[in-house]
Amino acid sequence: MSNIVKVGIAELDLVVPPDTIRTTGLGSCVGVILYDEIKKIAGLAHVMLPDSTLAKAASINIGKYADTAITSLYDMLIKRGAIKRNMKAKIAGGAQMFQFSSGSEMMRIGPRNVESVKSQLADLGIPIMASDVGGSSGRTIEFNPESTELSIKTVNMGTKIL
């Protein structure tokens, strides 16, 4: 019997087979999956903001920012036995949900999240095996650590597997 591990907004979690991991309603947020396909372990972070320097609060929620979420997800995976050189990533999200003529920085949050996630992964030397980013549709994603398949569901385009 396999379960689905659910990851909420600004949260992160790990999964091992036969379970799968899932996050719903990604808009401008980015879902980042890190996995070791040999050790069969994966983690998912639902990243909301590009950079923890944006934080104005005293204590920060590490799952919320691209920089802190990816490094802690990475550390969690290593701690659970994943090997650095096996580590790969798949990413989805970063949509522009609403189109505005006046493009303030806040309205560009989706693309900024994607840029930040990509540069964090590059810094860690983790290759991105598949990505489905941008556009203007919300996404629900589910990752299977056994097959390393990422299924992406959108309102207008059905489900696709990456």
């Binding site: 907004i9 719903t24 309603g25 990604l26 808009g27 401008s28 949509a95 949900m97 549709s137």
Partner: peptide
């Protein structure tokens, strides 16, 4: 679209 994607 999905409520979560919009509200976030």
């Amino acid at each position: 679209d999905m409520a979560g994607a919009i509200l976030s």
